[in-house]
Design a binder for these strands. Structure first.
Lengths: 220, 220
DNA sequence: AAACTCTTGCCATCTAGTGAAATACGTATT
DNA sequence: AATACGTATTTCACTAGATGGCAAGAGTTT
């Protein structure tokens, strides 16, 4: 990708992200967070507002607009990986009872959860669809980084969340890791032999998804 | 809202919407759809790509990027109306067995579904969260337009979808309609007296949500 | 190989975007 | 009531950032 870019657009997108991250923000806050003069930020926010990406509430705070929700949900539902993984994810939940996530590489050294099927236990992982996690400290992140041991899955205990154990396996398309399938389990519920068993089930499920993606067969 | 706006940003946002609507689009298609010269569209798409809002796949097509998914999901989960309505929506599903939606006014004369709880029947409505519907032809749209009869709910049979009956009721904050709660039911499963019963249950549930929003008490 | 279509890079041009300063507004204090 | 303060909004001279036509490159089809 060449260097050419458009400063004005970058500034507007930066303001959009600030509003979405904060949930609710004043003009002054947006301007400071984006390091822009107030009048510049106002004009750009006005443009975002006119296009429906942000809205101004009765208190004068800027909030995310319906357009960002619409395009986000639309893009998520059109993501073919989500539909291709649905069946395997549901089977995994049925086998393990634990919550299953699908994640892909996100922006700026992150992984982003793009689908989840909740486990069947009373105590399970809170829905994190749309959230990002650092590539460097998560099981899914390690998988997306192609850092997968011979066992075929990665285990991270006490990574992002202290009381959670995450196991992840790679989904490949033509030998390239394109997504990670992971189990996210409260640590109190997982013993050493569980990890081995779950890991294998996970790697198998990821294999099934991969085979639907035109994965090259590597000769044994 | 004043007229001042930023053409460059509008153009970029328009391209973003085109990519998300199409799911996958070539540079040429984006340029034509946005009525821009190809070199202008290329530069703006490059900017969107650099910020993670779109990505370019191996075939050279532009697709939604992780950033739009992330910000969309984040904004949706931060929407207080969704959490405030959760309990009433779940109770409605438990009482009726049908799918329940929460919608708000969207962009450009639309309503947008922002939350859904699936019904318990085998045959139920496909998840439409994030989708928009026209204000003018839907039950939710009529409610958001403040066009609610004295019964307290709106019924639309064969509106957006030919084989679906939708019943909607208003959620108010300080007498102003801020959202619509609706039941979406396959028409074969709904009889005349069902509509009356469901409508009342719906209006009551919407009332409960409204009371949590600082609704003014109108003296009887 | 030729023709066609799509993508990408370049750069002279100019207008669209900028931001400092002034003004307006709302709230709190004296 | 007057003043102070912080935030939001407006104004407009200025310039640099965005533009888009055109040529070249790349890919596909005949």
């Amino acid at each position: 990708m060449a260097e050419s870019s458009t400063r004005t657009v970058e500034r507007a997108l930066s303001l959009l992200a600030i509003v979405c991250d904060q949930g609710s923000a004043t003009l002054g806050h947006c301007a400071r967070a984006a390091d822009l003069p107030a009048s510049t930020a106002l004009r750009l926010l006005r443009t975002l507002e006119g296009s429906g990406f942000v809205r101004k509430d009765d208190d004068g705070n800027y909030r995310p607009g319906s357009r960002i929700i619409q395009l986000g949900a639309q893009s998520l539902s059109n993501e073919s990986l989500v539909s291709l993984s649905r069946e395997s994810m549901e089977a995994l939940v049925a086998e393990t009872g634990e919550s299953v996530y699908l994640s892909v590489e996100g922006h700026g050294g992150t992984a982003i959860y793009i689908a989840m099927i909740e486990g069947t236990h009373s105590v399970r992982h809170t829905n994190w669809v749309g959230r990002t996690i650092p590539l460097s400290e998560s099981a899914a992140g390690r998988v997306l980084h192609n850092d997968v041991p011979a066992a075929g899955y990665v285990v991270v205990e006490r990574g992002i969340e202290a009381d959670v154990t995450a196991i992840a396996a790679p989904i490949r398309s033509e030998t390239k890791v394109v997504a990670a399938l992971s189990l996210v389990i409260p640590s109190y519920r997982v013993a050493e032999h569980d990890i081995d068993r779950y890991g294998h089930q996970l790697a198998l499920a990821a294999e099934v998804v991969s085979s639907g993606l035109g994965r090259s067969t590597i000769s044994a």
